[in-house]
Design a protein around this nucleic acid. Structure first.
Lengths: 155, 155
DNA sequence: GGCTTACTACTCGGATACTGCTTGTCCGAGTTCAGGGGG
DNA sequence: CCCCCTGAACTCGGACAAGCAGTATCCGAGTAGTAAGCC
């Protein structure tokens, strides 16, 4: 029960694209920047394109570029783009099955367990939605020569 | 990326044990109450025993019983008992690999991405820790004849 | 020389194998209870 | 009548398979740039 590695890859890649700015960058260079398998990273980036976080251009000189500035991209956007909008807890309504399900009259109202877990789920999503990638980049920019290193690694 | 079904099963089973009270109940009856595979539910309950939420007694007339009252059991206790204390996001330190890792001098300080995801993780865990099973049972007790149905289903 | 055209190289995008974890099942160790035999 | 012993039934506990999502890889469709050929 943990997020896939694609989330980490996507966040770092989006940050790198912001640092580079301007023109599109191919998945091969983006993958080499962090030693990732290019084809698999490409698959993850396609998810980001579907979610509207990236735009892709085929052909030579093609690649991916940010669809909107980092200020308008939250961690929740990235997580939902990679993982889908599935909740952390999925109620299978076992309260309506087995002997209790047979004896109980009807599933009146929402499942209390589901509601409680849903509250925690919302807390997680709100915390994710409250942090934009721009804030993370601001923290990364404190390290000296950060932008310079990323640009030269992706050149 | 979602919690295993064992979490849902464990919560409902703990609530049922509280309603029944007193003597131990075998995994077979607990499973029949919700139409679950008995052997697999037993496996989950063993995790709860290891975590100190349940006590088990072997032999005939044996089974599981609550180790402490519902007021002292939070949703976080159950989730960590089943899923382990792994975080939702696991940083693999890709910032130290690939071309950027070669060019950057040293991994000074914590990874900003990991910190941001960790904040959301803490929000989730705090929301889980803030809800006890006693509160959920109080909500379930509103439904008429709830305790009666559970007791007769587990008799 | 300038324009058209065919070609090459490079990109994304989806279809195709592989791996690890969640899920599910099975059998053995241990304990309680019941019943029979002996004192 | 009371106590002891043997057996059986039932429980948990851990060891052993199956299914599926995540992981990884490969090849085809499409495009920009280039170079050659023609006007």
């Amino acid at each position: 029960m943990r997020t896939s590695n694609g989330v980490e890859w996507a966040i770092h890649t989006l940050l790198n694209l912001a640092v580079v700015g301007g023109g599109p960058v191919g998945s091969g260079r983006l993958a080499d920047a962090h030693g990732l398998p290019a084809a698999y990273l490409n698959k993850q980036l396609q998810q980001l394109v579907k979610a509207g976080l990236l735009t892709s251009t085929p052909g030579p000189r093609g690649g991916f570029r940010l669809a909107r500035p980092l200020e308008a991209i939250t961690l929740l956007d990235v997580v939902e783009a990679i993982e889908g909008d599935n909740r952390l807890f999925r109620c299978t309504e076992i309260r309506c099955q087995g002997r209790i399900g047979e004896l109980a009259p009807a599933p009146t109202g929402a499942c209390a367990v589901n509601s409680a877990m849903g509250r925690a789920d919302r807390a997680w999503r709100e915390a994710l939605a409250g942090q934009s990638l721009a804030e993370i980049r601001a923290e990364l920019d404190r390290t000296p020569a950060f932008g310079e290193i990323v640009r030269s690694a992706l050149q």
